[in-house]
Amino acid sequence: MPYTANQPPRAESNDELRARIPGWGADLDPKDRPSVPRERFDPGATGAHWEFPDRQEEKWPRERSIEHKFLTPVFGTSSPPKGLSGVLRKFAYATYSEGRAAHWLILLGADRVDAIESHLKSFLTTRPDNPITETGVLSEFHRNGFSSRFGRKRVDLHHQWIDPILVAGPWIAAVCAIVWGARALAKR
């Protein structure tokens, strides 16, 4: 009890814990813990055989944080910026540091624009986006969707109903807009 000086009594002794838990106390000595101390200067430990790495070729103007002095020598090349979302991303990187909320909010906005652009573009291909297969929602039928949820006091059910609205809502709104537009044109 914290109202007096004594340490609360232990429920199990070390010997009891050793008998019950395989390996109990194997890392009791901090010296046996690989990340203690957290910083340990040891340049020879990593396998690097360079003082500064060779530079990877920059095949397009690679967006970077303005908190970096220069483009890092190695970087990912997945999904170069494109379209309006790409313009937004380049603006966020070129204008705002990581310390500014605007940097992240513009990038999040660009992600939503990217999704819309990509969905629209997919309809010009032989493999348009399919919200049924891409959401994996059919697994509800063979992964016990009902019994996994009900009768289990799951608090995440309080908000799971929002997910279908977030996913299907824009699609339904788009279909409604197309139908509305088509009917408006037909009336002319």
């Binding site: 297969t133 891409e134 994996g136 697994s139 992964r143 969707g145 996994s148 949820r149 799971q160």
Partner: peptide, 11 residues
């Protein structure tokens, strides 16, 4: 896709 949904929805 079904793996992600199952893991996400804790099925």
């Amino acid at each position: 896709a079904e793996g992600y949904h199952m893991f996400s929805a804790k099925l």
